[in-house]
Amino acid sequence: MSKFKIKAFFAQLLALILAAPMIAWAGGGGGPFDAGTFSAIKVGLVVFAIFSAWLIKDKMGLPLPKLIQAPLLWIICYIGFRVILQPPIPFSLLAMYMGVCTVCIFLYCSLTRPSWEEFSHPIAVMLREDHATAKMSRYATFLIIPGLIAAQTYNQMLPKFGEPIELRTVHPAPPASINVHKKLVTLQTAENPFRIGDDGNYLKVGDEQKYFGGNAWTGDVPKFLQEVQQGGVVFFGTAGCFFCHGDNLDGKGPFSFAFNPIPANFADPGTISQLQETFVFWRVAKGGPDLSREAFPWASAMPPWEKHLTTNEIWKVIIFEYWHTGFFPRTWG
């Protein structure tokens, strides 16, 4: 077997190994594109990049000089964090990552004496030598760098109308206990009193699965579904939660577009299914005004529903929300 064949075999193997998790991950979907096409593009991009790097370096015998490698690596990192990683990460995190990458790419170039010389020699030539090419690039550099700084300054000074960066904890730590209708509710231990099964016992989280699906509004239904019904009445009637949280509990009610941030999307696996029932109880009962210091700037239009609903109604609407979305509350057991 020729050396080339072995290398080609390994390259394919590597590409496969890399591709497998990527396909799995990209297949998970999300993002603005249709999952299938977009993930195919992503995987293709990565495989192509690896293949061409191998082709250039080993097959054609053209190792890239360090001075080219460095910005190339930087750009690859940037594309990786900015484009390939979906959904997009916030700028603060991107800046942090790119900072680390910048430092480490510099370290990479200066790891050993030979690589440092390879990296710094062209720069030294450009700065010191006295022939035309060096001179030209020198002048170009001394024009470009101040130019970049000027552009950056201009950009900075330009008045901006974007929303300010804020550190907002969407799910701040709840208080230990809250007082609803003059009753103390300890959030750590409180339980939904309407979580009752057919036998009249407390229904463990997860056991309510048997009630999921189907229609709760037909004739004779088990006790649990009766609570769901009443919760539904609160959601669509008494409180009118659907105006903001939507008919499908997806946060897209008729009023929702007026709010920023948008109302919570209960159908998203990152909201109520990540929270304990008592946390939801706290949010419903106390609304935006009771958010803790951590959750600054308290951007929530949620009203304190304890002023309009009874404690029981709040517990029932929570039952309804979980039932409707098919999620289970989080437990710490």
Binding site: W25, G30, L85, P87, P88, I89, P90, F91, S92, L93, M96, Y97, V100, C101, C104, G162, E163, P164, I165, E166, L167, R168, T169, V170, H171, N260, P261, I262, D268, G270, T271, A299
Partner: peptide
């Protein structure tokens, strides 16, 4: 580098509401 990136990623991210919207929640899935 990989370890550093994992080590430095904060639990609570600093972001604008627009970024929050784009990310679809306070926690990034990856």
């Amino acid at each position: 580098v990989v370890a550093t990136i994992a080590w430095l990623t904060p639990h609570t991210l600093v972001m604008t509401p627009a970024e929050l919207k784009a990310m679809g929640g306070a926690q990034h899935p990856v």
